[in-house]
Design a protein around this nucleic acid. Structure first.
Lengths: 150, 150
DNA sequence: TGCTAACCTTCCGTAACACTCGGGTCAACC
DNA sequence: GGTTGACCCGAGTGTTACGGAAGGTTAGCA
């Protein structure tokens, strides 16, 4: 169960825009460089973010993209849903009720786990904003491999 | 981000075995019928569960599978990992440290969210056992669609 | 000595993923 | 007013994983 590069790159791009917030538009090329995303691909990914009004675009020379709202006002969950669709580790617990089409749903004994999983994912995504991510303190050191000291 | 049918079917099959616990071996055909999984596919899925010692097999006539431990002793997380691999909504936060190969990992600003997401998923999976799922009280009613009353 | 059922390997069609490419359109600036 | 920088839009493409099916082999029970 992986989130695709759409979600990964989408969030990275939005973080780049958040860091640049208040300093005018940022071009695809710049965003791509800063966030390490292939520029041609990024162009495709940023379109849905614009349609969802999470970013605003400015065309022509000196154009680019800006965050439509302040970083504190943008939940990661919003970005996630635009890029990946409704949170749904399994169709039967999709945020989009129309996707809950499994015929076994009403007496399925496994569904409660998936439901709890979905809720916990939603909680993480919706309780974090772009501002939280660009705050210096949030960086978490990686778990280190077992030390093989002398 | 979806868990595949491997995880879905694997957990369903284990629940079937849990309900049948203490009543002798259950054949693939029976498990498949009870849990609504294509029998030929189930045969493939149950093999890794046996290799991981989550189930035991008995060959020959009257053979089949039994749970290797009591339902209270089997965490859903164990089943999940056998079927789906390490919990890893993104490689950079995989439970398998060897998968954390992203070169950006050390000063990535987005990683904290994915890490929190992984931890919350792990918590759900490892705090639930097969016994929890077959207890009658755990069934959760589905959210109802918006009523379109007369 | 059959019948049953697990075991094992191989194969295959479909679909999603992760991009690239080419052209069109718009807005500044000179 | 034309050139240039940049967004906009659709199509196309190689690779991989998913979701199975098929067929043969081995082991235990009656």
């Amino acid at each position: 169960m992986k989130v695709s590069t759409r979600g990964e790159y989408g969030v990275r791009a939005m973080v780049a825009l958040a860091r640049h917030y208040g300093e005018g538009p940022m071009s695809i090329t710049d965003i791509a460089r800063v966030s390490s995303v292939p520029p041609a691909y990024l162009e495709q990914l940023i379109a849905p973010l614009r349609r969802a009004s999470l970013v605003q675009s400015k065309r022509g020379a000196r154009g680019g993209y800006i965050l439509a709202r302040a970083p504190e006002q943008v939940r990661i969950g919003e970005i996630y849903r635009v890029m990946e669709g409704p949170v749904a580790p399994m169709d039967c617990v999709s945020e989009n009720l129309a996707d809950q089409t499994c015929p076994l749903i009403d007496n399925c004994e496994t569904r409660p786990v998936w439901l709890k999983m979905r809720d916990s994912i939603v909680d993480v995504l919706d309780s974090t904003t772009l501002a939280d991510l660009i705050a210096p303190s949030t960086k978490v050191p990686r778990e280190l491999p077992v030390s093989r000291t002398a």
